[in-house]
Nucleic acid binder design. Structure first.
Lengths: 208, 208
DNA sequence: TGCAATATTGAACACTGTTCAATATATTTG
DNA sequence: CAAATATATTGAACAGTGTTCAATATTGCA
């Protein structure tokens, strides 16, 4: 039964074709300007065809979200695993997160800001496993900092991970949504990284 | 010339009528579902009428943003001015900000997440004065903490204000965009406020 | 070749923001 | 008061949106 296998492969190819076209438009034109009709015309298919592979637009955006996470996970948590010192590894992860967020604002929006992705997950009754995995790795890193004596033994892993995550997310999202323009600093990016360093300096003093 | 004054007043009344209808729909149905036609039909006017008072939808949303800020400024920064101790005042402001953000997610989105408001400001070549004022007050509070000996004298006011702002903004926005669902904690709100308290405890140790 | 299964289409539906000539109302002038 | 002017308001039209579904085209198998 090689035919049904080929059919399945062809289906998957079209699905990928849609996803890649969607990603191109999404990255160059942003969330608001990514329409089903634009995607369809880019790959020379009818708009209806997209609905044969994705239930609705949110599910397609969730697929883009997954792809973004796939890339990010690799470049973010995997690459810094080489750093032996847990505190330095934690700092490197934070800086990497911020850098990724400001370099890829559209992807970042999909991963951590837009709710359409969470809506798509809720309808499928699925868990936000990508986010959970990222936070899981962060918590492991915090735990390693505790074990190495950098942080107190009685800190709460959940609270501490949220503290770290929300700090870098806060800086990243305020920058991406143009809220930092009220600061007169010429070099906004340098300003953000310096602020992040202030944060790192206070957690070593405060949590030690 | 009482007639032109009355005309001006009537114009302002219609403009307010539009704004209030827009606010009602915006608060109950959210950003995505607030359409010009819905607003128009609610006040029994034609869609075209709205464009006689607001250049486009972004300008109308900016007006909603302004209204939200007006209310927030009062309830947030003014109310806590009674607290004499600058550090306690700072903590109260942070908790108040978080509470406001989770109680008024739509308004919060308009004020600190959506870019349509910043776009509207950019076109009018205006500054984000509401944001600048809020941060100005935050910086004054930080300065008072320095003067009172809570924080070191050599800290940077810009960096420290961003540190504080992005921390509370990070927690607020992650909650509002449903990203905190990966934490198994039953009481999410308590979890956020506890995390904020961890932050306050580390800044007093670290910045002192 | 004929029949069944699958794939694809594109028109249709109910929306969206925005514009603008036509119309209605109100004010001023002769 | 009537005519002319100025202002206010309309609603159809335009180009777009997500989504559905009967009709059509393509493919696989007997």
């Amino acid at each position: 039964m090689g035919i049904s296998e080929r059919k399945e492969r062809e289906r998957e190819e079209v699905k990928d074709l849609i996803l890649n076209a969607a990603r191109e438009i999404f990255l160059s034109e942003g969330y608001e300007n990514t329409s089903i009709r634009k995607i369809a015309s880019k790959i020379e298919y009818s708009p209806g065809t997209i609905y044969l592979h994705y239930k609705d637009k949110n599910e397609l955006l969730l697929a883009l979200h997954d792809k973004a996470f796939e890339c990010k996970m690799k470049s973010l948590f995997i690459d810094v695993q080489d750093i032996a010192d847990p505190l330095e590894r934690l700092k490197a992860t934070g800086r990497s997160y911020l850098q990724y967020g400001i370099d890829n604002p559209q992807d970042y929006e999909l991963m951590f800001i837009l709710t359409c992705t969470m809506d798509a997950l809720a309808i499928k009754e699925e868990f936000w496993s990508d986010g959970a995995m990222a936070i899981g790795m962060l918590k492991e890193n915090v735990k390693a900092c505790v074990d190495a004596g950098y942080f107190r033994k009685d800190i709460d892993l959940d609270e501490t991970s949220l503290l770290l995550w929300s700090q870098v997310h806060g800086i990243t999202s305020l920058y991406n949504t143009e809220r930092l323009n009220i600061y007169t600093t010429e070099d906004k990016k340098g300003f953000m990284f310096r602020t992040l360093d202030v944060f790192f300096s206070i957690i070593t003093h405060g949590l030690a």
